[in-house]
Design a protein around this nucleic acid. Sequence first.
DNA 1: TATTAATACTTTGTTATGCAAAGCATTCCG
DNA 2: CGGAATGCTTTGCATAACAAAGTATTAATA
Lengths: 111, 111
Amino acid sequence: MEEVEKWETQFKKGLIEALVMKAVIHQGKSYGYQLLVFLTEQGLEITEGTLYPLLNRMEKNGWLTSSWDMPENGGHPKRVYEPSPSSRENLKLIFARIDHYVGVYNNLRSL
Amino acid sequence: MEEVEKWETQFKKGLIEALVMKAVIHQGKSYGYQLLVFLTEQGLEITEGTLYPLLNRMEKNGWLTSSWDMPENGGHPKRVYEPSPSSRENLKLIFARIDHYVGVYNNLRSL
DNA sequence: TATTAATACTTTGTTATGCAAAGCATTCCG
DNA sequence: CGGAATGCTTTGCATAACAAAGTATTAATA
């Protein structure tokens, strides 16, 4: 099963994943806590227990790459994520699918 | 945990549930196969293995009531579903939450 | 200087979903 | 007759959201 198909199978439990991916692309290099704050500001309620395991999965699945950022002048080590080369193209496909579902939703809603 | 809250927890894997609920309300008395055809026409790809267990769960959780329709002049017995008294009000709340998520999505999408 | 809040990440266990796959039974149509 | 369409059920798999608890460090504040 191909990546995007696999994603779509899980979409109904995976809206969040697309939003996180977009946030990383938007913000460039990002780390977990920063994304947590950003996404919360955007109105998405998301907890640590959801986000951190999700970021790990997304790296495992090839959506993100990560490295450790060790600040020299003090500060907490941060795990920094970046979008993988293929992720931008994949996100476009995924957004098209979400748009499809939103379209179905709007049609049904207005019946 | 209250019904709508519980729903919202599961929303990201539960968009379909709201669409099915709306379909039943829209069509009045409905049975599984009919809903399957209707929702497919509306652009929602949904399979038997998803819909039938879902309808059972929705009845168990108080969203729907069901009865068996035994056609007199031949025909297959059909399990007929109807919206429960509280379901219309609940669906309004749920649609409000979906609209919220769609809003977050649209905001992020356009960044 | 204690103490608290904020920053930053991990792991475990619970509950639940979407769906492939297989099965069973009836009716309609060529 | 035989296959397609109608109509519902059940099992098993992969996976997600999140509560809860834990671990550390740094900044603020009393």
